[in-house]
Design a protein around this nucleic acid. Structure first.
Lengths: 103, 103
DNA sequence: TATATATTTAGATAATTATCTAAATATTGA
DNA sequence: TCAATATTTAGATAATTATCTAAATATATA
């Protein structure tokens, strides 16, 4: 969980998630969307993979990356536990919040 | 948005969010839940405040912290955009006409 | 086998972040 | 005004992270 949030703290990595949300992509395809060097992108991919947010699978010469929805839903679970919105299927948290004094 | 995710990347700060979810608390009350020095906790509070995730309000000697649900819901929005707002099984071809950002 | 392509690993460096102690600021009440 | 309490700011240092180039690994194909 901590690794997930740490991984999501970087805009490059969130964009990778956005791109993989559309469809699975190889490392090289992902690299086209960024200016940085491929080793740098590889570092970000490794960060996401280490967090369990994505998975990789070799396909011949290429390595194809895919989202791991299970871990993403754990993240969703925490955010929902704070915002209290919608269906909480993890541990439901009571949410009593008086929203009253803006600055 | 980036500041929010950066702020949430730290477990101390997520615990602060959890504590404020229960009820508003002063800096000193929050400090009771952590081992670190008060200046260190203040640094974390400042990080959350800078991200807009929490707000502070002086109450005499004390400073009371509250969650800012608006910004938290922006975070929720991004996570939902990845996981799929509905009750989709996995990420099997959702008809998402929502975004496309190359660049 | 040799070469080209795809990707990662290694190693270095610069930037960012977390933490501490000491000092400063704001408020309360005697 | 002085002392106590609550909290932050300043300044230093150590740890972590992002990035680069160069080299290594894995695969495909001529």
């Amino acid at each position: 969980m901590n690794e997930s949030f740490k991984a999501l703290a970087d805009p490059t990595r969130r964009k990778i998630i956005d791109l993989l949300k559309e469809k699975d992509r190889t490392a090289g395809e992902l690299a086209e969307y960024f200016q940085m060097s491929k080793p740098s992108l590889s570092h970000h991919l490794n960060s996401l993979k280490h967090a369990g947010l994505i998975q990789d699978e070799r396909e011949g010469q290429f390595i194809r990356y895919t989202l791991n929805m299970t871990v993403l839903q754990e993240v969703l679970g925490w955010v929902l536990s704070v915002t209290g919105a919608g269906s909480e299927d993890k541990k439901a948290a009571p949410n009593k919040k008086k929203e009253d004094h803006p600055s």
